[in-house]
Design a binder for these strands. Structure first.
Length: 437
RNA sequence: GGGCGGAUACCGAAGUGGACAAACGGGACAGACUGUAAAUCUGUUGGGCUCAGCCCUACGGGGGUUCGAAUCCCUCUCCGCCCA
């Protein structure tokens, strides 16, 4: 099999197509512009909305779009919406957005930066190295009159109100749409124009909800610069049942270790459903088609091995958290899911415990009769009330250090691992580390 | 502006003076079985306690009638439908 993903003779659209990441293209002969080996390297951008300080695996698809672009020999631009983030894109939103203040947006832009470096090549030596730009740099200084006169002139309100995202809000009595959000498309179109003029950027990539914004930018480039530009969108990636990818019961999965621990991140991928794992491999990893097909075949032959999920989890964790964290996550997973935590040595135990939610308890409470387990449980995230704690205990859902215990169990010194920690578990998957001080 | 109907737990939805922390369905959580899967079966699903029992808070908000109110009355808010 060819590991030729870095070579420039790869066809970007074909790459997206087999992965199921190609939704629509916009522009005449887009395939010729971006596709073949014979064409010159092109420049494309994706806009990112800095409404959160951390990116989720949902955002990763868009970053990955740029990565494929780069691996096909083209040059990617990450456009942080420091300016547009102050306004808010109405696309795909059913309610008016909360406006963020400029400092918040600036902070988020900075916080997101390192995540991009994990996926894109920013090295000086690369001829097609990625760059990060912030549209506040050009949207900030622009004057209102200038915007209305030079850019607004080219937009027809008649067309703007036809757009689904706008029409839905216009027809909604409760929500409505503010003039601010209504005008959003001018800014994004202007971004594209600006990048076309200053960076020779001719392609905008994005999710399918960005199609309208992208086409508006292409129009503006034609009208104001007499140039030709193109757009490529990805489908909305969702699970087969229509639910959003990347939501666990604890909320979104972030790419940043401060929001989602490497262990939780690893677990997320490991728990992908059988009938989704093939799509996940295509969507999220850089494995080539032959490797994916091979993994799928292996998985179909022996689903209980979950080779596909393991590979997926390993690749993703390594990509965002590095080899060391991946190894730690795998070690922790092996110990926790076998339930065999007693055999861990002190160092491994500490590492495993550090991957889990934890709390600190008074060591003195363990003396003599000890402390009722239920009382300790309420202070963990495993249960929400003492009543619930009793319920789980009665149902046999709670184990201490990997072993089932009686509902009336009291924690004593004998429940300490290496004299310092007790690992509690609810059900199969929910762990909590108690440190005794 | 007028008329009618409605607001019940995470969601849908019963209940129309006491046996209601509230049927039923979905969801969620847990147990069994498994592969950290799916399906299936079982249980739980407001909070507290000295836990086969007791106590507190709850049926849109506020007030009232009554020994007793999710249920009756007044009022406010919001939603739906019809008429202007």
């Amino acid at each position: 099999m060819g590991h030729d993903t870095d070579s420039a003779d790869h066809d970007f659209l074909a790459e997206l197509r087999w992965r199921g990441l190609l939704h629509q293209t916009a522009g005449e002969e887009v395939a010729r512009h971006v596709g073949q080996a014979s064409t010159a390297p092109r420049i494309a951008y994706v806009g990112f909305d800095p409404t959160a300080e951390a990116l989720t695996i949902g955002n990763f698809i868009q970053i990955k779009l740029l990565a494929h672009w780069q691996r096909c020999g083209h040059r990617p631009i990450v456009l942080m919406g420091g300016g547009t983030g102050l306004i808010g894109d109405p696309s795909g939103k059913s309610a008016e957005r909360q406006l963020l203040d400029a400092e918040r947006v600036a902070a988020n832009v900075e916080a997101q930066r390192p995540t991009f470096a994990r996926v894109l090549d920013f090295s000086e030596s690369a001829s097609n190295r990625a760059v990060i730009l912030n549209n506040l740099d050009w949207l900030g200084p622009i004057g209102y009159l200038e915007m209305l006169r030079d850019v607004g002139k080219h937009f027809s309100v008649n067309q703007m109100i036809q757009r689904d995202s706008v029409a839905a809000r216009l027809n909604s009595r409760e929500q409505g749409i503010s003039y601010t959000e209504f005008s959003y498309v001018l800014l994004q179109a202007y971004d594209f124009l600006h990048l076309f003029r200053t960076r020779s950027c001719t392609v905008q990539l994005g999710g399918s909800d960005q199609y309208g914004n992208i086409v508006s930018g292409m129009d503006l480039i034609r009208r104001m610069a007499g140039g030709e530009a193109f757009g490529v969108t990805t489908p909305l990636v969702a699970n087969r049942d229509g639910t959003k990818i990347g939501k666990s019961e604890r909320g979104a999965i972030y790419l940043d270790a401060s929001r989602t621990s490497p262990f939780a991140f690893h677990q997320f991928w490991l728990n992908v459903a059988d009938d989704e794992v093939g799509r996940y491999l295509r969507f999220f990893t850089f494995l080539d088609e032959a490797e994916v097909l091979e993994l799928e075949a292996a998985h179909a032959a022996a689903p209980q091995e979950r080779a596909a999920q393991r590979r997926l989890a390993a690749l993703m964790t390594e990509l965002f958290h590095g080899v060391g964290e991946r190894a730690r996550a795998e070690l922790a997973a092996a110990a926790l899911f076998s339930g065999d935590v007693r055999s861990l040595d002190a160092r491994s135990l500490r590492e495993v415990a550090s991957e889990l939610p934890g709390s600190v308890e008074e060591r003195a409470a363990l003396a003599g009769e000890g402390v009722p387990l239920a009382d300790v449980l309420v202070r963990t995230a495993l249960v929400t009330s003492k009543r619930e704690a009793r319920e789980f205990l009665a149902a046999g859902a709670i184990s201490v250090n990997g072993e089932r215990i009686e509902p009336e169990h009291r924690l004593t010194a004998s429940d300490l691992l290496h004299g310092e920690t007790t690992l509690l578990r609810r059900g199969r998957k929910h762990w909590h580390a108690v440190a005794w001080r």
